[in-house]
């Protein structure tokens, strides 16, 4: 059907390229399926106006839920994070759940893999284990208005 002449070198070139692409996709799929390495997400929803009155977002903060295990309930709003700062011991696993009562925000901790979109109406979840001690900066990495550049928070690992 597609009787197109391909020179021999081009066929070799495309085979090498195609095979490495397939290998690459297999690695990504295995990391996702076996390593449980998936980007943040979740299908939970919440009305933006109800954020400040609905548990758990009515009392945003850090809660210990097990040995070395925490749940961080965060409200990202114009132009602050609540809570603005958190402290956890080194080696803690933190389950983040973040939502927005107004516009779209980002939740990024430079130097880690924590990088989430916060969409009003939805709850974004991601789990991360903090091993490195120090003061981590939290920034909003999605334009959210005139104060976007001052929207920050911190998480201290002791």
């Amino acid at each position: 059907m597609l009787n197109i002449h391909l020179p021999r070198y081009e066929r070799i070139w495309l085979w090498i390229g195609g095979a490495s692409l397939v290998l690459f996709l297999i690695i990504l799929a295995l990391l996702a399926l076996l390593g449980d390495l998936n980007p943040p997400g979740n299908m939970r929803m919440i009305a933006p106006e109800a954020v400040r009155t609905t548990p758990p977002f009515d009392k945003p903060g850090l809660k210990q839920i097990g040995p070395n295990e925490y749940r961080a309930t965060v409200v990202a709003q114009m132009f602050t994070f609540q809570p603005a700062s958190m402290t956890v011991p080194a080696g803690s696993t933190v389950h983040f759940e973040v939502t927005s009562p107004d516009v779209v925000h980002g939740f990024e901790i430079p130097g880690t893999n924590v990088n989430m979109m916060v969409i009003p109406g939805h709850i974004t979840e991601f789990t991360y284990t903090f091993r490195k001690k120090g003061d981590h900066l939290i920034v909003c990495n999605e334009y959210c208005g005139s104060g976007h550049q001052v929207m920050m928070g911190s998480i201290t690992v002791q």
Binding site: L21, L25, L28, P39, P40, G41, M43, M116, H122, T124
Partner: peptide, 27 residues
């Protein structure tokens, strides 16, 4: 990819389609 409201399977399926454009680029 970093946002809620879209299932992981659908995200991955579209990654697969995305990568196919590598082929015409190599051509």
């Amino acid at each position: 990819l970093m946002e809620p409201g879209i299932g992981a399977f659908w995200k991955f399926l579209q990654i697969f389609f995305t990568m196919i454009v590598v082929v015409p680029s190599l051509m």
